[in-house]
Design a protein around this nucleic acid. Structure first.
Lengths: 153, 153
DNA sequence: CTCCGTGCAAAAGGTTTGCACTGGT
DNA sequence: ACCAGTGCAAACCTTTTGCACGGAG
């Protein structure tokens, strides 16, 4: 994510705060910036570790609370898959994920062919669909190398 | 899932156990049966509650361990979405999920149009894809009714 | 000045682990 | 008989909550 995109998102965040009368704290701005700056999908704890460098007193609690707030504002997304703790994703436009079932890495996939699935087909359930994403489960390149070396049983 | 299908899966389970020299315990059979019998996606705790009726001494620990074993054998799947605990899915053929962001319900979607996504498009990542599924996020019918009544703010 | 946000500590789940015992093969 | 599975209790890790203080609007 470029500096400009991050700045744009920060401004969006500021106006959202003002619109809702929410205080614009250092912590909130730093935590949002941290998530946006990372191309990967950090856990709350990873965010905490990064932001703590700039704000030494920062507590884990605050990170959890701010991340929740940001998710509520629609500025970031929360992900969760088996065997790992929750992760946060600053990319909010439609995209998809490769999920390594070995190391739990999450890799973004952008593919316009996957972005136009026919949603009407699922309407019969009375479900109101806000968004969707495709999860690809498998083994990432790194783990593949390791396992061929080791000759997994 | 019909009785016959469940029986077939149980037999598959038995031969897998024999092939690997794993003991075929009452608990394992009961836990697998319980997951297969439910059309929904029970949590470990829900499985425990159900199976405990037949095996009063059953411990939660065993449920967790057996579910993990069954996932490892490829007989069931584990799911995990934000805000909820892990859930288990006896349906292993390709299918998709509607996930209610309000009540965390998970509803199966079977739709052949979604079952033939072009996987080659993601190969550039060096990722070995074993399977995929589409996650639709939104609000289920029940929660929609509730929120219109309540006029959510 | 008034609230909401923050930090700390403690609680609350959900899940995993160590150990002795039981049960399947 | 042997080895893996089970049950219990305690540990663990992530996430949430209660409360007093401090900073943003």
């Amino acid at each position: 994510m470029t500096r400009d995109e991050i700045d744009a998102r920060l401004r969006e965040f500021e106006s959202l705060c003002r619109a809702r009368g929410l205080p614009l704290t250092v912590q909130r701005r730093a935590i949002l910036t941290a998530v946006l700056e990372r191309g990967d999908h950090p856990t709350a704890d990873q965010v905490h570790a990064v932001v703590k460098k700039g704000i030494p007193g920062l507590s884990r609690t605050t990170v959890y609370r701010v991340l929740e707030t940001l998710v509520g504002m629609g500025l970031i997304r929360q992900l969760h898959h088996p065997g790992a703790s929750a992760r946060y994703d600053g990319k909010i436009q439609r995209h998809h994920h490769l999920i390594c079932t070995h190391c739990h890495a999450v890799i973004d996939v952008e593919n316009s062919a996957l972005d136009e699935l026919n949603l009407s087909l699922t309407k019969k359930h009375g479900f109101e669909i806000h968004d969707y994403s495709v999860h690809f489960m498998g083994i990432c390149a790194k783990c593949r190398q390791k396992s061929t070396k080791r000759q997994r049983d």
